[in-house]
Nucleic acid binder design. Sequence first.
DNA 1: TATGAATGAGTATTCATTCAT
DNA 2: AATGAATGAATACTCATTCAT
Lengths: 231, 231, 231, 231
Amino acid sequence: MDARTPSFDPSPWLPFESRRRARDEKREAVLRTAVHLFLEQGYHRATLTAVADRLNITKPALYNYFRSKDEILFECWALGQERVDEFIAEIGAGGGSGLAKLRKLIRSYAQVMATDYGASLVRFDPRDLTDKNSKIVRAAKKSIDTTFRTYIADGIADGSIKPCDTKLSAFAIAGSLNWIGHWFRRGGALSAEAIAEEFADRLTEGLAAKPIRRKAGPPPEKNKRSRGGSR
Amino acid sequence: MDARTPSFDPSPWLPFESRRRARDEKREAVLRTAVHLFLEQGYHRATLTAVADRLNITKPALYNYFRSKDEILFECWALGQERVDEFIAEIGAGGGSGLAKLRKLIRSYAQVMATDYGASLVRFDPRDLTDKNSKIVRAAKKSIDTTFRTYIADGIADGSIKPCDTKLSAFAIAGSLNWIGHWFRRGGALSAEAIAEEFADRLTEGLAAKPIRRKAGPPPEKNKRSRGGSR
Amino acid sequence: MDARTPSFDPSPWLPFESRRRARDEKREAVLRTAVHLFLEQGYHRATLTAVADRLNITKPALYNYFRSKDEILFECWALGQERVDEFIAEIGAGGGSGLAKLRKLIRSYAQVMATDYGASLVRFDPRDLTDKNSKIVRAAKKSIDTTFRTYIADGIADGSIKPCDTKLSAFAIAGSLNWIGHWFRRGGALSAEAIAEEFADRLTEGLAAKPIRRKAGPPPEKNKRSRGGSR
Amino acid sequence: MDARTPSFDPSPWLPFESRRRARDEKREAVLRTAVHLFLEQGYHRATLTAVADRLNITKPALYNYFRSKDEILFECWALGQERVDEFIAEIGAGGGSGLAKLRKLIRSYAQVMATDYGASLVRFDPRDLTDKNSKIVRAAKKSIDTTFRTYIADGIADGSIKPCDTKLSAFAIAGSLNWIGHWFRRGGALSAEAIAEEFADRLTEGLAAKPIRRKAGPPPEKNKRSRGGSR
DNA sequence: TATGAATGAGTATTCATTCAT
DNA sequence: AATGAATGAATACTCATTCAT
């Protein structure tokens, strides 16, 4: 009788099996399970016992890896944020017009939203965190917003995006994207990639300075700029 | 300086004051206070004692008007939903192209999102309700989604909207709008009306079959443009 | 205003006597309803609201007639006790052997047990009363027990009952009788009178110094056997 | 003065003492304490805090062993019922006339009634249980009643008991026995065994088809008479 | 590292009772 | 006499967290 039936159980605490895996792996497993449960049931309804149960361990064991429930919540968020930071860095490092960067941002952000950790960015409530972590989260959220606005402003500056209210435009786009974290279900009719592609087009369609066919002509002087707008 | 500052205290239980106001008024006051607190602190962190305290009454007094905390939550949601139902009915009763109806829908929905009851539609978690009410809420959400999709489909059919994925488009628009419930703060730089106007334009810009800006030729009758728009 | 002008007084204010009677009537109605509900649901589960509802009045109205819930309980008990006191006085006043008096006692007690107020004597918990009332109840219970024992002792003394342990005999008889208050349902197969008759015989059968009615001849075919028995 | 006074404290949570006893032992200790308190104060007046206090633990600790207060109540009842089931099975397995079996039943039942768990069979209110458990209890009660009736019917059939109304006879006997659960106090004048013996005789005396053997002559010497007995 | 057991702090809910009208 | 509204006191139950082993 082989105790190893690893195919469908991601828990490193498989009963009757070696318990020597690395600490980080276990930590990660906790987070995977926790983020899933938190999304499924909501942070407050999801108990640590339930998290532990799914991992075939006991509640106090969780405290070997995390100091508190809200720390787990924070780490879930952090993993999602990490990915966002990554692609933002990438996009920032690359070139392209404001519009191009905005499109990349949308595409990447949409894909992240379709993951558990990504959804945790918008479905978890920072007020459940400690003050310290709550501030970190809010700062990160603001930073993402700023990135959106910056790319839009860049686009306006470089002529790839037609003048508009950067603040509202950023909110409109971010809203569409964040919403993905609420309705997307893995295995549904639409793949994350398809959604990302589609959104990259759709959400910028109205912003693009030149419709697919562009004729010569000065860009409109319309210069509405929100305070956030750089240039 | 006048001691009477009635503008911000909605409690009919003001101490040392007449307590004869109608029952419904009190019920409503409870809801007003509750929705505010639930939004401010989150449903789980907000205790009924806190709600009662703000109303200058005691916790059990709340039970004269509501049977449980989750019933209060549900009623808050219901008030928001009521308003949505109203304008959806209005729009449905009126005429216009699919695009025109979509624009009206966006405008009205955006404005509702900027109210407490409206925000409660998207910031409260149906899983906090009883099964029965949870189902009602989910059905209503689905119905709103359907309305969005229907108008888009109508627009495609009548030529006012260019062919697109109705589902994704509806999600994109709804996401932008729902997001308002999260970021809008009364008294901020933007009024609800301004946001509504702007969103009605922006969110349909990419969908409109014919570009808003038209070359020589008869000016489009469609002249709704946000106040910000110069030219 | 003379209270004694009852004949043609059109005043809605009933003359004193009459009003007092009306009041007593209502008081009694409350007790009737209360005892019924207390028996049906148990004292703690039965709320005063429920009592009031059945009377088509409101809870505070009850306080016009009774000072507290436990006073209602006590009065219910008192009405039952009153009846017991009555027939005990009667039996005591009459003559007869100890056995005869015991039989009368059993017969009467059984019949009272089959009423709501009677059942309240054994199904209500004196610990739910105030200390003062609780003592009254316990004294009355003891007195009933004493009565049973006295009649048995009388019977032994006068030769109508064969020597036995008076305490245990009294308990055995009282137990059988009290149990009626738990199982008897009005409208069932057996009438209270029938039960009373039967118990008067059965419970003294073993005690009688000489068989109740012993004739030469075959034993009676009395074959009353209830069907499967309800409950 | 010795700190160990084990005679009257059954708590495995004795402070400053080993806490390693088995789980079942603790569960049992909870039940022992609970049944005692429930009988002493009544189920509704007895709080879980009081139960916990007597065990030198805190209220939530109880929830390690039981899911709810009413589950504790049910388990108390179940322990009593278990004993009843045991001796009923034993008697059923043994032989003897209907009368003999009835006598055994009475004797055993009386003894169980003199224990805490036994008393809980008749002093706890099934309506305090969940519907499911309430049904179990009522079924068990019915089953006991049926057992009484069956033995009586058997006795009538085999001639050991003279014809009578089985239902009423069963009620009469059960009533006497159940009553024990209300009046018996450990350490009183009468031992449980003595009561059981006496009741086995007394309660069947009137039923026996042939008087134990009745001759002219002196009454049997068996003259156990309680202090209350006059003569 | 892991766990069984225990706890403290917190919260919704119930209900008898009172009070102003 | 009656009521609508309010309250205070009480209690079961939950759960994150700790601790001894």
